[in-house]
Design a protein around this nucleic acid. Structure first.
Lengths: 115, 115
DNA sequence: CCGATATATTACCAAATACTAAAATAGTAA
DNA sequence: TTACTATTTTAGTATTTGGTAATATATCGG
């Protein structure tokens, strides 16, 4: 059945997988986490500070990123270090930011992202 | 309060906006719609066929894309034509696809995206 | 006006997601 | 062992999202 469906709608399965990655990134806390990992691994505790969220909440968001395969973890002593396992997604967020700016510019007629 | 918060956590507002764009894309039906608009505008009816979903459901997904500012609409007679208003997001989906392939390769130890 | 067609919206329910407090796990060190 | 720290998990609830059927809106051709 899966193969037949795939024959009829070849992009369905792929679209689902892409959606899974996008969903994993589609939360402000997870975006902030992921962006902050661009310059190197950080412990869960450091990420709690960066997000400004409660430990449990940050931990759950980290689990989402980990389950999606976007970040890797490494345990050292008491600490768990998180790192970016999918560097190709960094430019994606820049593109998204461009889109945000395009929309903002159209809405407010002001240049919002000069840099 | 918003400005103070922005001072403390400068990326929060931006992260929220990026998340809004990502969320708008993070659904297989919407991904398929958006990808199919890469080669030109299509009517809502054509998109219903492409998605294989019920009209009402496709329409709701189209509304999500429209509200996010990702697609534009143009009415001509009875038809509503949808078009990509954010072409910069097309390469984003290629990058996402790369990520999907990376993860798939790691999981099954098979090259999945030779195309 | 009418009926037909294309699209959008509403109302409703089920399922998924987000946040919190509390408990559990795991490592370290005394 | 006990105590302490870092992190994760569980359980609870609240909010959001997704799908469907029914209804509504809009445009065209008589």
């Amino acid at each position: 059945m899966d193969q037949q469906t795939a024959g009829i709608r070849p992009n369905m399965e792929a679209a689902q997988k892409k959606a899974d990655i996008l969903k994993a990134l589609a939360h402000p806390v997870r975006i902030r986490v992921f962006e902050s990992l661009a310059d190197g691994e950080k412990t869960a505790g450091e990420l709690v500070v960066i997000t400004g969220e409660k430990e449990a909440n940050t931990s759950r968001h980290l689990a989402v990123l980990r389950n999606a395969g976007i970040v890797a973890t490494r345990k050292e002593g008491l600490n768990v270090y998180y790192s970016n396992r999918m560097p190709c997604l960094i430019p994606v967020l820049s593109c998204i930011n461009q889109a945000v700016c395009t929309i903002a510019d159209e809405h407010m007629k002001v240049a919002c992202c000069l840099r």
